[in-house]
Simulated scan of single mutants.
Amino acid sequence: MGRIMPFAPRILHGYPSATEALDPAESLLLLAIRGWVDDVRQATDPLLRLGGIAAQVGVPAAAPALDMVMRVIARTALRPVQIGCPRCPRLGADEQRLLHAARLAQGRETGLAQEVLRDGLLSDIGAQFALGPLQGLGELLITAGFKLRPRLLVDLAGIDDGDAVHWPLSLPTHH
């Protein structure tokens, strides 16, 4: 005879509107994303900052993975992507979408991650290209103890992106 286990559904909460309410893994990823955009905006190589952040938390290989994800996003976005400045206290809709896609990819829910990226953000091919490095990034973060928290992605239509930087941005060229 089998055991009867009580079913207790896990209640998932949505993403907070304030960055201070993010978990450490979410904060780390958001800081890296915002830093990447800030560097590109200033025509600085974003790998320098990413490399420093990644080395500081013990996953130097995460820097090229995130750089690849962000370059794919920058080149395949269907519309201007809104990312806040590094110190912005608010969490915008596109930032929530990217954190959610990263969490899904980290949890090996690749079909859902790709769907989140495609949902008004990236082209089909862009979502496909972003998925591989996003999964790799998620695995690297787990090895360093940064597991992204499962959350619900709620309706993003009414979220104020405040001082967000709008893409497309011109990417730095490497010599």
Rank of each mutant, 00 (worst) to 15 (best):
157 A>Y: 04
142 I>H: 12
143 T>P: 07
145 G>V: 15
34 R>C: 02
165 V>G: 08
141 L>D: 00
168 P>H: 12
17 S>T: 11
143 T>F: 14
114 Q>R: 15
110 T>N: 07
42 Q>E: 13
154 V>A: 14
168 P>N: 14
28 L>D: 03
67 D>H: 12
43 A>H: 06
98 L>C: 04
126 G>Q: 04
173 T>F: 08
13 H>Y: 09
169 L>P: 08
129 F>Q: 08
129 F>S: 15
127 A>Y: 02
38 D>P: 00
115 E>G: 13
84 G>R: 00
83 I>Y: 03
166 H>F: 15
128 Q>I: 15
163 D>W: 03
165 V>L: 14
151 R>D: 04
64 P>C: 07
67 D>M: 03
56 Q>D: 10
160 D>A: 11
16 P>H: 06
152 L>I: 15
27 S>V: 07
88 C>K: 03
161 D>M: 12
11 I>G: 06
150 P>I: 03
72 V>N: 00
8 A>H: 06
130 A>T: 10
103 R>C: 01
13 H>V: 06
170 S>F: 09
144 A>S: 15
105 A>P: 02
7 F>H: 10
34 R>W: 00
162 G>P: 11
138 G>K: 00
103 R>F: 14
96 Q>C: 06
27 S>C: 11
93 A>W: 11
58 G>R: 12
114 Q>M: 13
152 L>M: 15
154 V>Q: 13
60 P>T: 08
10 R>S: 11
54 A>G: 05
37 V>G: 02
63 A>M: 08
158 G>C: 10
132 G>C: 13
93 A>Q: 05
101 A>S: 09
175 H>C: 11
57 V>C: 08
105 A>W: 01
60 P>M: 10
35 G>Q: 00
13 H>M: 11
